[in-house]
Write a protein that binds this DNA or RNA. Structure first.
Lengths: 349, 349
DNA sequence: TTTAGCACTCAGTAGCATAGAGTGCTAACA
DNA sequence: TGTTAGCACTCTATGCTACTGAGTGCTAAA
């Protein structure tokens, strides 16, 4: 694993140059551009070694070298220096998050847009998961003689609703009663605590409205249990088309067909692999989908009051500007966390 | 405008063949495949006429003919025969819509998915607009000493919510009072009827809570006025990549960059141009966006209880299967209308 | 009015030579 | 022992040419 200092410099030059140009890098280029103080011939020797060790590869004999997956990994783990955001970029993000927003969805959307604008790759954002949050309020609203809307509010501000069928003859007053009882009994509890015992208690109290109660409970359960909402904000996928590796339509197609399978992406976002300082970098095959090829993914969780509630991520070609994206993603999680907290808890403006 | 019978047949053959193959159509092909009972030479003469009149064009001298925009228009207006859906397709749609669904969003999503699956083009669906709907219920819920959530329910089942800041010291009871008054005064009214006079009345009654009332009213206004939500469901954009006209990356890029500007699409969806039997077909330039090239759009409104509340549409290359898509779009609006009605009004299962 | 025949046009493709980038190896050098 | 210059070699990319084939438009005959 330990590597000669000069080899590291050569590898770094190759990775950086390839990231910048998308062209295989030759020994002459390195000697000229990165002034290691040695001749191309020496660099060629180093390159031969690096290739033997698996850090770089050659598309064909008369071409320069490109980093292998292992090469990128070494770069990310040992060589890369964070590239901080420019003042303008930081300002752009901060500004956007200072503005008033209506709801969680909007914040998510904004974050996604920024992320893809700044990185020029695709962005993915998983909205706050509510699996372990607690129940805040339930409201039944009569919509029609035989229909009612159930609204469930979670204490983190998320909201779920559904229209259900109710037997005719249930009055608005009945609904108020049911809402009242449910609120009194369930408020502040997490799903784990809503045990059968408790349920029985409520059922007794509201025996007359068993049917409607069943439906309401179903929704509450759904809201509380639905772990991974399988919804995910995807943005800037089209940026990817500007990357030279996607000038080939076939590649674009496979990429996009994957991206449409949101579920799988969700899992990837949720799972934190080898995380370093909060940020996870997955390179090539490390994305455990045999179908995504030549892509890397950088993800990080954001939190509300220190509790991780969701993740954001950037998907780009393996030839990705890791140094930059890692910084952006990190900065974004901080801002997103803060914005979420402000919105939900009512701190600050 | 009147056209020779045989010319019509030739034009029809050219349009149909080009739609099917995406290759310029030659005189020999027409003579062989479409057996008009005349020789290629005769067809060549007809084709020369058709070209002169602007219905078809030639990419280059030694190629066959392709329909011009005007040619497609003539085809759609006078020649095309609806191609009804297959039994399987109808069943697929009906089945999907019979299933239980949670909310409007889900129905919309389902419709979009079906539309793009069946047509293999991109689908666009505008959710029900609430501009003129009436207010059903408002609920204030305390989330935190200085934050409350306002939930507004419209009588068509749409729901809007926002977290607002409230002065500390407002109790849950106060909120109940406010909710109560607002509900009593506003229920069933459309925005048009919520006039200043009425507002004053409420303000008097709730003078003590002016601030929070302002915020609540703001949300109600937003919910009621927000005409075009500018949200739109887009699906199956990636299908388009299978169309040979989009094998050129540049075209894909311009197409996709347009599609990202949802707002403009919204306007197109909302506006019904030359509508025939509920369905509007826009060919090429007729889509009033100078940037979308070589695309056609087929749109139709769906309704709830006879009132048009939204639109659905399909976007594809000008070389689109008009006959099929028109039928699909029409069939889909019917099903979507029914599903919406069922969900919101509580008819049927 | 229709058709057969024919010369003409032009995109696409295959073949071929050339240029250029980059390598690996060897031998000389510090 | 590590570094470098020189050189032969490999392989892609590019441009050129010739050829093929699809399809046309025109003319003259049926």
């Amino acid at each position: 694993m330990k590597m000669d200092d000069r080899k590291q410099k050569v590898l770094m030059a190759i990775v950086q140059d390839f990231i910048a140009t998308a062209e295989p890098v030759g020994s002459r280029t390195i000697a000229k551009k990165y002034k290691l103080g040695v001749s191309p011939a020496t660099i060629r020797n180093e390159m031969a070694d690096l290739e033997e060790q698996g850090y770089i590869e050659q598309p064909h004999t008369s071409a320069g070298r490109i980093p292998s997956q292992q090469g990128y990994r070494y770069y990310v783990d040992y060589l890369m220096k964070r590239k901080e955001l420019s003042v303008e970029e930081e300002a752009l993000i901060s500004n956007q998050f200072e503005k008033k927003v209506k709801d969680v969805g909007q914040v998510i959307q904004k974050a996604g847009l920024l992320l893809s604008q700044i990185t020029q790759y695709a962005s993915m954002i998983m909205p706050p998961q509510i699996g372990t949050n607690s129940f805040k309020h339930i409201q039944l609203i009569s919509m029609h003689p035989s229909r009612a809307m159930v609204i469930v509010v979670m204490d983190n501000g998320m909201l779920h609703h559904r229209v259900i069928e109710v037997p005719e003859g249930i009055t608005s007053n009945d609904m108020e009663t049911i809402s009242g009882v449910l609120n009194a009994k369930l408020q502040g509890l997490t799903m784990e605590s809503i045990k059968m015992t408790l349920m029985k208690e409520i059922y007794l109290e509201l025996a007359m409205h068993k049917h409607i109660l069943d439906l309401a409970m179903e929704l509450i359960q759904d809201s509380l249990l639905l772990k991974t909402e399988d919804k995910i904000y995807l943005g800037g996928v089209f940026n990817m088309l500007n990357q030279p590796e996607f000038h080939n339509i076939e590649k674009v197609k496979t990429l996009l067909s994957i991206i449409e399978q949101e579920k799988m992406l969700c899992e990837l976002l949720a799972d934190r692999g080898r995380e370093v300082g909060g940020v996870t970098v997955r390179i090539g095959d490390e994305i455990k989908s045999h179908k995504i090829k030549e892509c890397s993914m950088i993800t990080a969780p954001y939190s509300i009051c220190g509790k991780r509630v969701g993740s954001i991520g950037v998907l780009g070609p393996t030839r990705m500007e890791y140094a930059k994206v890692v910084s952006v993603v990190e900065f974004m999680t901080k801002n997103l966390s803060r914005a979420m907290e402000r919105m939900i808890l009512g701190m600050g403006k």
